[in-house]
Amino acid sequence: MTVPALEVEGLRHGYGGNRLALEDVGFRVMPGAFTCLLGPNGAGKSTLFALATGLLRPNAGRVRIHGHDIVQAPGKALAELGVVFQQPTLDLDLTVLQNLRYFAALHGIGRREADRRIETELTRLSLFERRGEKVRALNGGHRRRVEIARALLHRPTLLLLDEPTVGLDIPARRTLIRHVHALCAEDGIAVLWATHLIDEIDPATDHVVVLHRGRVRACGPVAAVNAETGCASVAESFDRLTAARPAADVEAAA
């Protein structure tokens, strides 16, 4: 049996107070699958990301990355994980190359090997010629591309992206979505792409996990979720699942 790239089980987390940010969240992302984590603002997406990257420890439940528990074996789990955070995390005053070398070093990749991988990843994103420029000189779309190149340097099996298209114009968004889909199809990388923009989903190939008020309302391939909600499109399904009072309490399809 294939090991899921990401396995979330019974995850619960609260920041104190009455309301839990996440309650009994569970789903899987298999290798090569492009999975959209859909949810309105405040659904718990960022909390889920903080837990999955080990920046927070859950109150209950577990997250496994390629079979490694993020709490019990953080080193092995993080080695399999690439992350693009919602807020920009590049050093603006350093060059593209310096930023990428720093990241490679954090993963223990030596200079020669790092430079080789940096060339490969940057070439794929047509940014290799700009490696010597300061990040400050790049536009938002290019900065995001550098962050994606960076997240792949240590060859992770799972790539997490937290609303990566925020603030990008439409062509830049399209380039990014196409590139990440290609990563799934060609390299077998598993992707969890958090968004609240329905039009970023490709209904033919993608999977979705719908998160609302800290709970998973549906998950599976787009067609299956639509069948379950009885809707014609993922947009309708999403509206129904995240309505203030869901028409039917749809259980997670996992």
Partner: peptide, 14 residues
């Protein structure tokens, strides 16, 4: 922004 780069530091497997 720095909290951002702190995250990059802390998601290293070391």
């Amino acid at each position: 922004r720095e909290m951002g780069s702190m995250r990059i530091l802390l998601t290293s497997p070391l």
